[in-house]
Design a protein around this nucleic acid. Structure first.
Lengths: 252, 252
DNA sequence: GAAATAGTGTCTATAAGACAATATCGG
DNA sequence: CCGATATTGTCTTATAGACACTATTTC
């Protein structure tokens, strides 16, 4: 296996397992971090996108893209810190939920050269986000597993993976709780589940599942309205998401 | 938010969203791919490790590490191709299952500089692997979520994540089928599940689940032994893993 | 009281857990 | 027949799905 190509060996093996001098002066891929930021706005699942600049050499000028950018090795201690920095820059919010989604790397995904991006996805409450938004970003509602504008790079593919992962996990986890404001009612939480899944859930089963999980606790307040008031709840201090033993609807 | 640090901006924003000239001449992280390769050997879940060389400048000389190495941008079309190449180099096997595990990147995980690795995990059948193994690799049985030798870099952490992901998924997927030889019996498949999960499963429920899934098909052959023969099965052509609606044992 | 939504209860269906019963081989 | 393992069946339990019913507010 070794010694097939001169340059191949230099980059492929020397630095890690080769017996020759471990040169590190071979070309390295561009390294970026991108974040898929979800929220619930206007009764819809929405994702935050950035309009790309149009300076000289900018790929995909003027199109929309996921928030992100190059890893700054002088500034970012690790990948997650880099993701949190970019999240804060665009939203002014400390996300209650940030999960690594995957990485995409290839020779042709960026016209500037071989590049790899580390993609994350974040969930933030719909409330109180508007004010802190950066100037160049905008929310877009999800249509299926994508958005209306054509995205830069392979970001449509990354977004699709994020939506699929989110929808999939919502079937058996408490992730939508991270899309809720501090205080919320059970019907409101159920509505969030239904928006993400794009399908109605049984009220009774939903309540049983949520209340039997060690997830939320009632507070001494009710949500008033033109009808029967609803009990308000808040997330328990335990930050970890809950995993249920079953999905919501058994597949046919 | 923009313009906080001179160097920070150069690397962090210019190339992707800045309005200034998009220079690409800032330092890039080292980029590697590592693979956690699992198999079943000697009634145990085992992982493939490589002994690192001890040339000049080699970090962690002589210790064991996950198979992997630098991305070769001249040779590897994309990250997955890079992972498949390294898998084939070490095992001579085309893995029936390869999944992205996640990425780990930080300033200090590699003494040679800021580095990011894209980790994959692979499942290969225990049969017919021995012959094609590279010279510098070795199987190690899992003890809990790790192995006996101390691993290089942050590979113990990556291995732990892989084991947890595997055990977690085995609760509700057909992944262990990829650890089986071409022909196998239901009790043998159940044994594989039990080895990975390190816990006994109910025979009856297990059979019902496997047979009602569109996963395996009986062949016209039986496994003979000193007792009642068992029906032999093979995986159906459909390569995709099956996701069940429930986990095996409801958590307490 | 009517409308609207919150919350509970009742019945059924599905699949797992426990474990017994039966089947089929080699000796 | 005996030992061993494969395969099937029976009964119970837990939870989802469907959907009816009751509760509490505003108007």
């Amino acid at each position: 296996m070794a010694g097939r190509h001169g340059q191949g060996d230099a980059a492929g093996d020397q630095g890690r397992s080769g017996a020759k001098a471990p040169g590190l002066d071979f070309p390295r891929p561009l390294t970026t971090v991108d974040i898929v930021i979800f929220t619930i706005r206007q009764e819809a699942l929405q994702v935050l996108l950035v309009r790309r600049g149009s300076g000289p050499g900018e790929p995909f000028p003027g199109t929309f893209a996921l928030p992100g950018g190059f890893v700054d090795i002088a500034r970012d201690r690790d990948l997650e810190a880099c993701a949190r920095r970019k999240l804060a820059e665009k939203t002014g919010v400390v996300s209650p939920y940030l999960e690594q989604l995957g990485s995409w790397g290839s020779a042709d995904r960026d016209p500037r050269g071989w590049s790899a991006t580390h993609a994350y996805f974040a969930l933030i409450p719909g409330s109180a986000v508007e004010a802190a938004l950066a100037a160049d970003v905008q929310w877009f509602p999800l249509e299926g597993t994508g958005v209306t504008p054509k995205l830069a790079f392979d970001h449509a593919e990354i977004l699709q993976a994020a939506v699929q992962r989110l929808r999939n996990k919502v079937e058996y986890t408490s992730l939508p709780a991270y899309l809720m404001p501090k205080e919320f009612t059970l019907p409101e939480l159920q509505r969030t589940y239904e928006i993400v899944l794009d399908r109605a859930l049984e009220k009774s089963a939903f309540r049983t599942r949520m209340l039997s999980a060690d997830l939320i606790e009632p507070i001494a307040k009710m949500r008033k309205g033109p009808n029967r008031p609803a009990q308000l709840y808040r997330l328990k201090k335990t930050a970890a998401p809950v995993y249920f033993a079953r999905t919501f609807n058994a597949p046919e």
